[in-house]
Design a protein around this nucleic acid. Sequence first.
DNA 1: ATTTATCATTAAAATAAATCAAGATGGAAA
DNA 2: TTTCCATCTTGATTTATTTTAATGATAAAT
Lengths: 193, 193
Amino acid sequence: MTTKPLIDYFEKFLPLNEEEKSIVENVFKERTIKRRQFILQEGDVCKHNTFVVEGCFKMYMVDENGKEHNLQFAVENWWIGDIGSFHSEAPSRLYIEALENSIILQAKKEDQLKLFVEYPKFNRIFRVLAENAMVSLQNRILQNISSTAEERYLSFLEKRPQLFNRISNVQIASYLGVTPEFLSTIRKKIAKS
Amino acid sequence: MTTKPLIDYFEKFLPLNEEEKSIVENVFKERTIKRRQFILQEGDVCKHNTFVVEGCFKMYMVDENGKEHNLQFAVENWWIGDIGSFHSEAPSRLYIEALENSIILQAKKEDQLKLFVEYPKFNRIFRVLAENAMVSLQNRILQNISSTAEERYLSFLEKRPQLFNRISNVQIASYLGVTPEFLSTIRKKIAKS
DNA sequence: ATTTATCATTAAAATAAATCAAGATGGAAA
DNA sequence: TTTCCATCTTGATTTATTTTAATGATAAAT
């Protein structure tokens, strides 16, 4: 019963009855992923919606110069996936790679759609999830267009302290949109003050 | 029947029956908004979800130095609102201001919730809307962390050509996260090449 | 155990972008 | 018409950030 963390997660939004719990167990399949393994690569269609039970992932784009740009990290109790590709079934521009050995739960698109059609409660839960994600993304954009890199780094430390000890500064720099070298000078400046 | 554009909009996602069309007419109220008028101000709770029938709005934050940072524009057939504040009922940090004389349709929170509970179809439509919004926001973040201001401006012109002739460069600069002066030098450089 | 890759840091030079100050333009308003 | 205000532009200066290159430290691979 690895689906327990996911059921607990859903129940933070709306309580589930026994039937709904058992459909979650049927729809979401457990997978074990090793560090450095990919669950999505550029050019592939994103066929799964992924919930992280244990471990850590990054989702990133590779630009024309071969540089990686981290769009998102996901640790325990986070969702990750290229929703755009998942819905449109167009090839993704993104990679999703495990930063640690991980355990995930995945739903295939057709199963998740069935869930939405047959169990309206999940429709409601996923609407709220998407809206919450929108709010975080909007806040991140506001930060990006209004703050310096130093302010963005401080705010990242404040908002995601769990990640600070778990992810290398190279990865954090890529998420913030600065070079690792510049992040290093920012850290030096902060340490001094 | 100003709700017609909204009904047409919903039907691009899922067809509505007569009952559903009439509930849309009941829930969404028309308002006329003059240029420079606010429909949300910092400190207020965002009590409405807004659909733009005609006109143009900007949603922005004012930083500690008094500078405005545009998070979003909305023209015909776009939604605008501070979803975070709408859901949490916490005071908003954002302003929403009309850039032109406008006509909007607004639903109060309790009415919209009733819609979601009693007419599951709208739950589904709004889930898809939120997911689409997530995709655009993710793409914008990727752009912000991976591109120069010039690339961001060119991409804005390509993606939102309707806005190019309709919105001042000051507003576009604020949306891109650069100063109007620097946007001017970008434009000069592009014109030369 | 040794080699190899990744990571974090530093510094100098180069570029991107913000700030400051000023002038030109054109439409709105009196 | 004249005044006024917002917009756009320009150039000089300063600050933020990237690039390049080099180094020591650590972790991964052989």
